[in-house]
Computed example of a mutant assay.
Amino acid sequence: MSLELSEPLQKAIDGLSESFDDKILDVYQSTDSTFVVVDRESIVEISKYLKNEHHYTYLADVFGIDRYTSEERFEVVYNLISLRDGVRLFLKVRCEEEEPEVDSVTSVWSSANWAEREVYDMFGIRFSNHPDLRRILMPEDFDYFPLRKEFPLLGIPGSIELPNSTPDTE
């Protein structure tokens, strides 16, 4: 399959293919965006390469996806931008349902800190070597991960104390 890419984006894809041939699992386009699925164990190394060699200096976002599949259930997606070249690239890693874990990229982009914490909080995907991996939106003692597909739409009754929604009439 031939992809039509801008020159800077093509150079980045070619560089990844040459330097990390066995660690690039898939390259595809969807809705005019380019996605590169990489080996989970290589995310930090590939991130450093993209930042240092291809100027992807801006990590715009990190988000999780629950694919709800029997294998490689979860994905972590990194939204990278080369401000110099004005191009965007999405890196993806996949992990299993049981004890999902990915290396943190905070050593490459410090902006990953809170985004990785949010992915951990909502999906339960742990980020090894994260400087402060703790819940960011939910209470520390909350036993559930609200963005997993099996989480009930109305929540779990009694799992968290909710504020009173009835206005005081005094």
Rank of each mutant, 00 (worst) to 15 (best):
S2H: 09
L3A: 10
S6N: 05
E7S: 14
P8K: 10
L9G: 02
K11H: 05
K11T: 02
G15F: 00
G15V: 04
L16H: 11
L16T: 09
S17R: 15
E18K: 09
D22I: 06
S30V: 05
S30L: 15
S30W: 12
D32Q: 14
T34Q: 06
V37C: 04
V38Y: 04
I43D: 13
E45H: 09
I46T: 11
I46H: 04
S47F: 14
Y49K: 15
L50H: 08
L50P: 08
K51E: 10
K51R: 14
H54L: 11
H54E: 10
L59H: 07
A60F: 05
D61E: 06
D61R: 01
G64W: 07
D66I: 08
D66G: 10
R67W: 08
S70Y: 07
E71C: 07
F74S: 05
V76F: 11
L80V: 07
L80P: 08
I81Y: 10
I81W: 08
L83E: 07
L83I: 15
R84K: 14
V87D: 15
L91W: 06
L91V: 07
K92H: 11
V93H: 11
R94V: 11
C95H: 09
E97Q: 13
E98L: 12
P100F: 02
V102N: 01
S104W: 04
T106Q: 00
S107I: 01
V108M: 08
S111M: 06
A112H: 01
A115P: 00
R117T: 03
R117P: 01
E118A: 07
V119W: 06
Y120H: 03
D121S: 07
D121G: 03
F123H: 06
G124R: 03
I125K: 06
S128D: 03
H130A: 03
L133P: 01
R134D: 11
R135T: 05
E140W: 00
D141E: 09
D143H: 05
D143M: 08
Y144R: 05
L147S: 02
R148V: 12
E150P: 01
F151M: 06
G155T: 12
P157A: 12
I160N: 06
E161Y: 00
E161K: 07
E161C: 03
N164R: 09
N164V: 10
N164A: 05
D168S: 13
E170N: 11
